[in-house]
Amino acid sequence: MSSKLSEHIRQMPSRRDPPYRPAMTIDKEEAAELDKKLGDAANYDIGLLREMVNADPDNIEFRKALVSGIASAEYAGIDAFSRKVCEWQDWEVPNSLIMAMARQTWDEVRHARLATGVLESYGGKIGEYPDTLAGGAAGAAPSSTQGGGHAHGNGQQANGGATPQAAMQEPISMLSAVNVSLEGGALLLFKGTSELGAKIGDPLMERCFDYNWADEVTHTAIGDYFVKLLAEDDPEAEKRALRIHAMSEYGRTRLDEQQTEELKEFFADEMERATAALAGGGYAGQGAQDTSDDAASGG
């Protein structure tokens, strides 16, 4: 049976002041405003914005957009990890994992405060740009999709994993996807942004993101440590962790346009099924094959 605390948290929507405003939901007026500020609304992309700041260091709007995009993810991190502090008390996990999530929540609070400070140094504020990530919506899934019942051990919960959404709440999967894969990948973002700050003579940007980088190394280590601990002597759990890591990376490598043969091989079956599904949907022929190949190779 779920605890009252986790039930209560699941019912609570993700909130922030000013309210979250996901980039995908902005209206035409705001898109036109972004066109004006960034040359194109589609340029509101953290990877590209770093290159834009590098190309035009005097353009303060580019810096505001870059730091806003990163800060948005930090606020979402506060929401997501603080939910885990409550929700994972329903699972049979060591108390040290709950405490690690609490520590991580406070780390994200510091990151959000630091990024907000950098943004304010440019004359910007939170909410001026839309959110790249908005709240811990995944953690706020309706209780009907959550597993109930008593804990079973090794990060397991009765009926947990009944739906893909519920499966993502499970500690091993979530730690592997978010702490190890996502935060591990974010190490490059923070390192690169800190180096960019040094290059353009912006010490606040340089030091803020160097600080964040150091914390992200710890967060990745926390995730790796607990996945190892929870999946110890459980090869199925270890395979599940690997698979969820691959899925998390798969989504991002397409964005990063990187080639990963190993990942492509890992998802060979999925690609075959996707190709068959595309063919079944009337997208037969070489085009369907190209689509699945492109997805794997980052095209």
Binding site: L48, E51, A55
Partner: peptide
């Protein structure tokens, strides 16, 4: 990516 950033710079200026 650099070319796209350059185009953005030119467009806003």
């Amino acid at each position: 990516r650099r070319e796209r950033a350059q185009r953005a710079k030119e467009k806003v200026h």
